[in-house]
Simulated scan of single mutants.
Amino acid sequence: MDNVAIADLFAGLGEVSIRRMFGGKGIYHNGLIIGIELRGELMLKGDEISAPELEAAGARRWRYTGSRHGKLVAMPYWTIPDEAVDDPEEFGRWARKAYEAAVRWQSKG
Rank of each mutant, 00 (worst) to 15 (best):
M43D: 03
E48P: 09
L42M: 09
G24K: 08
I49R: 12
S17G: 11
N30W: 00
E15F: 01
L13D: 10
N30Q: 01
G23D: 14
G14L: 05
G35W: 11
L54H: 04
L13Y: 07
I18K: 03
E53S: 14
K25N: 14
A59W: 01
A56S: 09
G24N: 08
E55P: 08
E55G: 12
G58C: 09
G24E: 07
L44Y: 02
G35K: 11
L32W: 11
G40L: 02
S50W: 07
W62R: 15
M43A: 11
I27Q: 05
R60V: 15
W62Y: 15
R61F: 03
I18S: 03
M43S: 09
G24Y: 06
L54E: 02
I27H: 06
Y28P: 01
A57L: 04
R63G: 05
I49N: 13
D47M: 10
E15Y: 02
I27S: 05
L44F: 02
I33N: 14
R19E: 00
L54N: 05
G26R: 04
P52A: 08
L13K: 06
L42A: 06
G12Q: 03
S50N: 12
A59E: 00
G58S: 10
R39S: 15
G35Q: 10
S50P: 13
G40R: 00
K45V: 13
E15S: 09
R19V: 00
W62E: 12
I36V: 08
K45R: 14
L44K: 01
